[in-house]
Computed example of a mutant assay.
Amino acid sequence: MNITSTLVTCVDNWLQNLYTKMYSHHTETYENTVEVHVQETSSPLTKTLVLRILINEEHKQVHIPNIFIPLNFHRQGIGFGLIKEILKVANVYRYELFIVDMTPSFYDRLLNRNAQPAGYDAVRIDTTTRL
C-alpha cells in the first residue's frame, strides 16, 4: 500500500459513523489528492466537501486545505479525530502534516492546541498537538 491508499482506508474507517447518517457519500482520489464528499439529504444542495487531502511526495508532506464537518455533527470530535488519524498515517510514512488555508479563528484554535505555525494561514501538526 502507498500513502494515498492508506489515507483513503483510514479516512473512510474514521468517518463510517458519519457516513451511516448521510444520504450518500463517496471518496475519490486523483493527482495526489483525496476528497471526501457527503450528501445529507436527497437534495443536491446538501452535498458537501468534507475533506480534501493533498499529498506532496517530493517533500514528504500531507496538506489538509479543506476540512468541513456538517453543522449537525459539530462538537462530536469528528474533525480533530480525523486529523489525529491522518497524522498517524503521515507518521508511518514519515510525512509531515500541515493544515493550510485556514480561517484566522481555526488557526488560533490550533495554535492553542500546540500546533506549530507554518505561515500566516498554515500550521504543522505533530504528536505534541492536542487533538
Rank of each mutant, 00 (worst) to 15 (best):
N2K: 08
N2Q: 03
T4D: 08
T6D: 14
T9F: 14
V11G: 01
D12M: 07
W14V: 08
W14R: 12
L18G: 10
K21T: 11
K21W: 07
M22S: 12
H26R: 07
H26S: 07
E31Y: 07
N32P: 07
V34N: 03
E35G: 01
E35T: 04
H37S: 06
V38H: 14
E40F: 05
T41M: 11
S42N: 15
P44T: 10
T46N: 11
T48V: 08
L49R: 10
N56K: 09
N56W: 07
V62I: 15
I64W: 13
I64K: 10
I64Q: 04
N66Q: 14
F68A: 03
F68R: 12
I69V: 13
H74R: 15
H74N: 12
R75A: 11
R75G: 06
G77F: 10
G79F: 11
I83R: 04
E85D: 06
L87N: 04
R94E: 09
Y95K: 01
E96H: 12
E96I: 04
I99G: 09
D101W: 11
M102G: 05
M102N: 06
T103I: 01
P104R: 13
R109Q: 11
N112S: 11
N114V: 00
P117F: 15
A118E: 10
G119V: 08
A122R: 11
I125G: 07
I125H: 07
T127V: 15
T127Q: 13
T127K: 15
T128K: 14
